[in-house]
């Protein structure tokens, strides 16, 4: 039996008029129906999310990782590209993650790599979600040939494997323009926005038929206002879920690109680059060079996936989902 949550206990909140009505109608008997405390939607979603153990744990772990990546370098005594004299040293007190063939402290490297990967992932997901939301909302709202054309373009982008395009574009252009990480983020955003656009469009298509849209229009609201003040806020659940999933996807794609040498380039480092450097490490006898960066990639993606799952359930609980 699930534990009784105190806040769900029946609370009598009669208003004066209603209670009088009920009182008389029931022949002077005390009120029989129980009312429950009203909650805002935000509270409801928040509470549902908290019930999801794995999601909450993942959120905590993820926040710890973020702290590690961004606050860690400020506290750690070594910087990430510093060639120390300890070559290929296993994990120890001074080098908790060991060192590589250049003497770089892996702990510092992983901190920096995680930070870079997270920066790219977060900026890509926010940018692509914003673009995708606007695009999908406009497309779904106006329908007709505008929608058809817009969706064809989006579908086109979707069907091409992201890695391929990223490699082509980044390799060729970045050499001449810039190899800074935000350029990579820009390319990835351009590849990921159609995912969000599709989902938002689907929601908008159904929402635009609802009465509140008609009511708003009857009151004289302009299209842009209707879209962005009425319809989009109702899609917030899906949008947030897509956002989290895009973070996960971006981490996977960016690390893969960096692994192949097409993403984050030296001297900058990302988790993918670190794994690439350590790919023969296991056989060579320095397994820490592989396992630590790999572990962090898995950790980030896993926690994001659980958080996304918890959010999806919090916004739209369905019977068919397994509580992870």
């Amino acid at each position: 039996m699930p534990e009784k949550n105190n806040d769900d206990a029946p609370v009598l909140l009669p208003t004066l008029g209603a209670s009088l009505d009920q009182f008389v109608r029931s022949g002077g008997m005390p009120q029989r129906e129980f009312t429950v405390k009203a909650r805002t939607q935000r509270e409801i979603v928040f509470r549902r999310f908290l019930k999801h153990r794995a999601a909450v744990t993942s959120l905590i772990v993820f926040l710890l990782v973020v702290l590690f990546a961004f606050v860690g370098p400020l506290l750690w005594n070594q910087s990430f590209n510093f060639m120390s004299n300890d070559i290929e040293v296993p994990p120890s007190g001074t080098h908790p993650f060991g060192t590589d063939s250049n003497g770089y402290d892996l702990f510092a490297d992983v901190m920096h790599g995680t930070a870079r990967t997270l920066e790219i992932a977060l900026s890509v997901s926010i940018a692509s979600t914003v673009i995708g939301t606007v695009y999908g909302a406009v497309s779904g709202y106006f329908r007709g040939w505008v929608d058809t054309v817009m969706m064809r373009i989006a579908d086109l982008i979707l069907t091409i494997p992201a890695i391929v395009v990223a490699i082509i574009v980044s390799d060729k252009l970045s050499a001449s323009i810039s190899s800074a990480w935000y350029f990579l983020a820009f390319i990835l955003s351009a590849l990921f926005w159609p995912v969000c656009a599709r989902i938002v469009r689907a929601q908008v298509l159904s929402l635009r038929e609802k009465e509140f849209v008609e009511a708003a229009r009857a009151l004289g609201a302009k299209d842009t206002r209707i879209i962005f003040r009425h319809i989009v806020p109702n899609c917030l659940g899906s949008i947030i879920v897509v956002l989290t999933l895009t973070v996960a996807n971006t981490v996977l794609v960016e690390t893969a690109l960096s692994f192949l040498g097409f993403g984050v380039r030296p001297p900058d480092t990302s988790l993918g680059t670190l794994v690439s450097n350590g790919q023969t490490a296991i056989q060579d006898g320095f397994p820490w060079l592989f396992y630590f960066p790999a572990l962090f990639i898995i950790l980030i993606v896993l926690t994001i996936n659980f958080i996304g799952d918890g959010l999806r359930d919090a916004f739209d609980p369905q019977q068919t989902r397994v509580r992870a």
Partner: peptide, 24 residues
């Protein structure tokens, strides 16, 4: 008037009482 009671927390006695004009 009214609606059927919740089957989760039925009070003792006749479930129709809140809607019944003859309730005593």
């Amino acid at each position: 008037q009214g609606s059927p009671p919740s089957l989760l927390s039925l009070p003792p006695g006749c479930p129709f009482v809140p809607r019944c004009p003859l309730a005593k």
